[in-house]
Design a protein around this nucleic acid. Structure first.
Lengths: 339, 339
DNA sequence: GTGAAAGCGCTAACAT
DNA sequence: ATGTTAGCGCTTTCAC
């Protein structure tokens, strides 16, 4: 378990350290034999180049920052943790490490940036989920590559990996329509959030396309955060004021779960009395008796794509901004049924 | 936002780079005036020492690994994420960074270790929660300092930050006893897990001390994992076979929530018909109507303590193993009441 | 109390 | 196709 250096490898392979370095970087003009010899030595010694030494020369840290609000990190549903795992997974192929930092959801006037930025201990960063504009403004002052996931600053000035929320909202609503539902409600929290707003747009488009009129009484978007308790409350408002709703599209699974709980508590059965569909697919384990139909979001893949983007941008800072849209997929479980 | 080096600071302060270095490390034989001058320059330039350069000399990476199973990371309740945040928080004071890695819950015969170990990119590691023994054995081959949190390898050969689970289980059960309950059930998953087993022991001790006999029919510990679905199942077994149980101590909040759902579904009211207490305090947001009484575990603080321990051990590798026991605190909410 | 200089492990430009 | 060497930014003796 000793730590060997490039010198040890060079000695063992009877070449210079420069040659070893070239082999490591897969340089073209290295003879196959030399390459082989060196690789053998590397393997035998279990040699791993020192990241510090490399970093010193290349002026790179080999680290990528992953930033999200503590709200998002601590949410009961593991949405962003999955995305994080995707970045971490993909990071291997790029020989990068991911440093995770959370920031306060209300990033105050003089809140400080994640330490790895001030410390200059990253080469680029991935920002996951909606974060305060104030934070974004501050971060952009450091000229580090930035990639957004599941959110994009309104000026759209960075690369982003996003869900096709509008299409997803359309498909979810269409699913309910195909099951014969006409009185289809929508609940959403923080509708100013672009993702949730797009899902809402998809809902309206689907109704419109099916020739079903949009009824404002069936729409409840006043909650400020798409969490369970708010789903519960939204459902209460909705169902205590409207008796003929037969289906509900919740902007995410958390709100869908809250709504289901309300319906149960108020003596309604899902899906017998009301069909419910969510979005995100994070609730698999949560509802024991009535598994939730939902729109599956490829969370791991989103992380993977984000890591690919940031890695490219680190290598090639002049890169133009890219947008990757990933589709959401309809998953039919037990919470929706034919009317 | 340019990157200044120690030379720039030296030049600005009219001293040598050695002096700057000494000031940074708060060396005693530096005159107050020089110290001041240098600090001024550092501030003015917003100078941060290069971690790579430092690492190269000191043969340290400045990184600490945080390892847990993906099961634990992705669990619906943010228990280990809180601990992680604690380590990250405390890491600032030690100028360390935390690298998070998950391993498969069933760490197979030839599964590979977290990359930062093979890469030698950490100075020490924190292992959170129960992990496979095979993983521990493999990791110990690298002679890196190890600190456990919320688990300890059976041979107890490392430092650990643990909850006083036995005392916690005792207090939880005592709470129910004080409310007048006599027929008190216990549900647990994976009772071979030391933490859960200790909670169980606390339960038994409390009953014994109160002169209440331990009824094996009231104990359901056959589930293999302390998750909601298993709490639901355990409650079903328990309550369909026993009509006179008036209180339930669940080994953790997840199982308590599952049990509450079962009771609701089967027409029983909490706490009117059955009092329930959990453990961990991770369910604050989850139960809307009946907030769960529980034993609060200081998760953030546990992370903080773990980081302190590992930091000490990195600086002083000869350190003897330490054990830090943190108490769990009774939190009475709405799910328990006087009989 | 402060400075000069060696050297940590690596990359890359330049020689050969 | 391979080797020599300067130098990245810092810490740490050793001089003075």
């Amino acid at each position: 378990m000793t730590n060997y250096t490039i010198k040890d490898v060079a000695k063992m392979a009877n070449v210079s350290i420069a040659t070893v370095s070239l082999v490591i970087h897969d340089h073209k003009r290295i003879s196959p034999e030399t390459k082989h010899k060196v690789q053998q030595a590397i393997e035998k010694l279990n040699y791993h180049p020192s990241r510090s030494a490399r970093g010193l020369v290349s002026r790179k840290t080999g680290n990528v920052g992953f930033i999200l609000t503590n709200d998002h990190f601590l949410r009961t549903e593991p949405f962003y943790t999955q995305i994080f795992m995707g970045t971490e997974f993909e990071a291997r192929d790029h020989e990068l490490y991911v440093l995770l930092a959370t920031v306060d959801s209300d990033f105050g006037e003089n809140a400080s940036l994640p330490r790895f930025i001030l410390d200059k201990n990253i080469d680029g960063m991935i920002i996951a989920g909606k974060v305060p504009q104030r934070l974004i403004d501050k971060m952009r002052k450091y000229d580090l590559p930035i990639v957004f996931v599941d959110y994009l600053a309104p000026d759209k000035k960075n690369s982003v990996v996003a869900i096709d929320n509008e299409e997803g909202g359309f498909l979810a609503t269409q699913h309910l329509i195909k099951l014969g539902h006409k009185n289809i409600a929508f609940i959403g929290g923080d509708i100013s959030h672009p993702s949730l707003n797009d899902r809402f747009t998809g809902y309206k488009n689907a109704l419109e396309k099916a020739g079903i009129s949009i009824v404002s009484k069936y729409i409840e978007t006043e909650e400020d955060y798409p969490a369970r308790a708010n789903g519960y409350n939204a459902a209460r408002k909705l169902f205590s004021a409207n008796k003929n709703i037969t289906a509900l599209f919740a902007c995410n699974d958390a709100m869908a779960i809250g709504a289901m709980q309300y319906l149960k508590d108020s003596g309604k059965r899902v899906p017998d009395d009301v069909s419910i569909i969510g979005f995100d697919d994070v609730a698999a384990e949560v509802m024991i008796d009535t598994p939730l139909s939902t729109m599956r979001v490829p969370k791991l893949e989103m992380g993977v794509e984000a890591m690919k983007l940031i890695s490219e941008q680190i290598k090639n800072p002049g890169l133009i901004n890219q947008k990757i849209l990933v589709p959401a997929e309809l998953i039919v479980r037990k919470s929706t049924r034919k009317i």
